[in-house]
Design a binder for these strands. Structure first.
Length: 193
DNA sequence: CGTTTGATGCTCT
DNA sequence: GAGCATCAAACGG
């Protein structure tokens, strides 16, 4: 059980993402194993919010590694990224799915319509809701226990051969194979890579 | 099963 | 005004 050092995140998101698989995400009262992620970059990534440079929304993506970039989309959903790379360079990893490890009762209260536990956190907006993430978490430092958030290595190695494929829900940059998942787990989002 | 569609409001041009 | 790093319900086979 150890917290990941900032140096782990101070690299391009494309390097960090596959190694983030099987790490443990912790928020007050809830815990889950990261099983699906996507990497986003900056100017060279047409699928990224940061593609056209910093804006009020995306400025944290250009900031310090280990902070959270939390954005609101489709008028109703929050999604959570961990900022990667050097200060001044946009990069982040979107958390797309986790396997619930603890606090399932809390998650069920936050997602009352969900019937099967496998659906609690099997998508970026699903896990954000189940973990209680919202705009108040944008910009917090996940490596300094900001808002009780932690990212932990419990000794489970990241998969030697992660499932890899294209990103989900994009109209630009959809060809880049920057999505990774733990092979064989049930609670990842569709389509499977 | 698989595919389609409505919900709903922020962000940037 | 257009588009959106989504979800769940409704529909069809």
């Amino acid at each position: 059980m150890r917290r990941l050092p900032r140096s782990f995140f101070a690299r391009p998101g494309t390097e960090v993402a596959p190694e983030l698989l099987n790490k443990v995400l912790v928020a007050p009262g809830v815990r889950g194993r990261i099983v699906e992620v996507e990497a986003y970059m900056g100017a060279d990534d047409p699928g990224s919010h940061a593609h056209r440079g910093p804006t009020p929304r995306t400025e944290v993506m250009f900031g310090r590694a280990g902070h959270l970039y939390v954005y609101f989309t489709y008028g109703m959903h929050w999604c959570v990224n961990i900022v990667c790379g050097e200060v001044g360079v946009a990069s982040a990893v979107l958390l797309r799915a986790v396997t619930p490890l603890g606090g399932l009762d809390v998650m069920r209260v936050r997602r009352p319509k969900v019937r099967r536990d496998v659906d609690l956190c099997s998508g970026p907006a699903k896990l954000a809701a189940a973990f209680g993430f919202d705009g108040a978490h944008d910009g917090i430092d996940a490596l300094r226990n900001g808002a009780g958030v932690r990212i932990i290595d419990d000794g489970t190695p990241s998969p030697a051969r992660p499932a890899n494929g294209v990103r989900v829900g994009l109209t630009h940059g959809a060809d880049l194979p920057w999505r990774w998942a733990v092979p064989g787990v049930a609670d990842i989002s569709r389509p499977r890579p």
